[in-house]
Nucleic acid binder design. Sequence first.
DNA 1: CATTCCCAAACTGTATTCCAAATCGGCGGC
DNA 2: GCCGCCGATTTGGAATACAGTTTGGGAATG
Lengths: 239, 239
Amino acid sequence: MEYSLGMATGKTRSEVDGTGEAARRISARTVCSAIRDDIVSGFFAPGGRLTEELLAKRYGVSRVPVREALRTLESEGFVRTRRHAGATVAEPTEQEAGDLLEMRSLLEPLGAARAAQRRTQQQLRVLSGLVRLGQERCREGQLSDLPALDGWFHETLAQASGSPGLASLLTQLRRKISWMYAVEQAGRGPGAWEEHAAITDAVARRDAVRARELAAAHVARATAAHRLKHAVNTRRDRI
Amino acid sequence: MEYSLGMATGKTRSEVDGTGEAARRISARTVCSAIRDDIVSGFFAPGGRLTEELLAKRYGVSRVPVREALRTLESEGFVRTRRHAGATVAEPTEQEAGDLLEMRSLLEPLGAARAAQRRTQQQLRVLSGLVRLGQERCREGQLSDLPALDGWFHETLAQASGSPGLASLLTQLRRKISWMYAVEQAGRGPGAWEEHAAITDAVARRDAVRARELAAAHVARATAAHRLKHAVNTRRDRI
DNA sequence: CATTCCCAAACTGTATTCCAAATCGGCGGC
DNA sequence: GCCGCCGATTTGGAATACAGTTTGGGAATG
């Protein structure tokens, strides 16, 4: 218990961060991300109850920011709430999980095409840098960094699409997919980063058609490497 | 001012609904829908400031439910908030608006295909009933009912997909599109409802492939009838 | 003994009040 | 004329209070 987001229970903020250690100023967003991370990581099991009081204690905040976070998470689909019965972690069915992959396979190519048309020079530099890093890590065998690099690559690509809505939707899809699926990274690291490099090349040349094709192929191959975590779809009572 | 969601400012709920007129019990959701409707209807102009106090007065609730509503609307993309600068109505660019149509044209066929595979008998009955109503209204020239019927049809179809996430996403897309676009209904009413009937038929026969094709064609034709409301993209200061 | 009904505890939903922090607009100094 | 500073306004959050629901367990009953 007591993760302490920068302030201890029962003490005012100024009493805590007197050190000026830049404690998180805004709790609501922080709490939202924290709860989501705890859901994705499996700390909160699907179907488990999320009592406002419990969450408030856990993150060291009052009920107000917790409630705001829960509303956001509800509209993101990670949490389900019943009128007066409180919030529970969502329990996606196998069908919903499958649809997530399909939605991504439809939208990711669109995002890549738009990124090719609208990316800024700076975004392109970030993408190139990430590709170089990813390929380096592949050669070095530093596989532990790959998931994060992959996430950053796709997030940057999404943001380069120029549509905040599309970008946030793609990010949300990736988060939910990583919540419900495990990836067989077998030997796919190098191949995936070659595909990333090809997409980045098309984006650099502003070739939207090619970027779309490459992204579609990339997502299709990635999808094939996804396996449902068996926990999904099994109903469990209580936390 | 003072829309009164069932309670007057400064009075407790019990003082007001002594008549038992089933006043809305939960304000947060109600306020969220109310603000969203006021945004979509244009009452709150893009870029306009949404002061918590103002919203609280307007809907006759305290700041707490208003804040929760704003969080939801923010994650839906209707509202933009800066750390301590408050909330403003989002100002979508022409690019974002265009991407909305494309996202729908990708996802609506998926929804239709899934609906064909997973619809319940009851959902099919609702769809058939709506189609019959829509075609009746077309013949009678009752065009004023058509937008609502169209909305219900697509909403029912989305829910029949069996993926709550996909359904809510499609509904959200339609709401945003109706916010930013005007539809040239010229003579499209009957044609659209013929297409609705064909989709319903495919859904009834559980023909996912055909439902997908028909939905794609339907959305493509509908897209062609959409015209950006000129207000979009023009920056305005204040409400 | 099983079933049903009812009640009390727990929790949500909201209001209210208070306070700290940050933004924004205008004012004065340079 | 430009820059920086100050104060009013507003957001973000805490703490408290209370009504309305849901829920689970226990008592009464067949």
